[in-house]
Write a protein that binds this DNA or RNA. Structure first.
Lengths: 137, 137
DNA sequence: CCGTATCCATTTGGATACTG
DNA sequence: CAGTATCCAAATGGATACGG
């Protein structure tokens, strides 16, 4: 099992993973999309909106720990990227409903897959972490 | 507890998405895992290590824009969580090889799915963003 | 009910310089 | 080659107060 790998020529072994290759601007689609939905709350908002549209405060209650400010900021960002649609009904008091767009629904699929992975592997990560911390005491 | 809730359309619809439900500690697996791999560089490191193990500087060259410090920090974090294995060969100069573990390989699958989504939908997000910014000029 | 505005502590991460 | 150490600017995000 000799692993004498000498291939160290800065070999361009990228472009093998769709979405991760770099474009002309030097960034890659994955980096770009992560900059949009890779923050603290976006994925949680998306997944909570996936079954059905929700109003602002209902959404806020269902996402434990999110502040009013961050929910507003997150929703604006998602709306800006076309993942969420905001509908206002000018009643008194006003009702604002948030819903996933078609694109928003489509990204919910791979996100849910990641969620499933997280659920199944969280204990393993926790164990690995404890082992690591114990070893490097 | 808040009972002054007039939930008209919005039903209590959580716990429907695996990995996103909250546990006793108030957090959910998804939140927990995102805190680990949701940073700027982790996903890019994982996807670059997926085809084959790589040495430190080769990895650094293949991830454009990453600083030496952040590559070290990211790799330590991934190693701590058991997603990456670090192998040192005490030669001169030393050779350090990084490889995905089995768990690391397994998370690369949903990540790749997200990458594929990113590749296909980046233009749509960009268009939506420009439309939004134009409207709210 | 659904926000916006302001303030401020914490975190993040690049630049730089230095080691075995 | 593969790091570590230090410094510091910028981004993040909670708390709070106020407005339509």
């Amino acid at each position: 099992m000799d692993v004498n790998v000498k291939t160290e020529g800065a070999a361009p072994l990228l472009h093998t993973h769709p979405g991760f290759e770099r474009g002309a601007n030097g960034s890659c689609p994955m980096r770009d999309v992560l900059d949009r939905i890779g923050d603290t709350w976006s994925l949680l908002v998306i997944i909570n909106l996936q079954p059905a549209p929700m109003r602002f405060n209902a959404l806020r209650r269902s996402i434990e720990g999110i502040s009013q400010r961050m929910l507003t900021v997150t929703l604006r960002s998602l709306e800006r990227d076309g993942l969420v649609r905001r509908t206002v009904r000018p009643t008194t008091p006003p009702e604002v409903e948030y819903a996933l767009t078609d694109i928003g629904q489509s990204i919910a699929v791979p996100i849910a897959a990641l969620g499933l992975w997280a659920q199944r592997n969280q204990p393993l990560l926790q164990q690995a972490r404890e082992r690591f911390d114990a070893t490097n005491a």
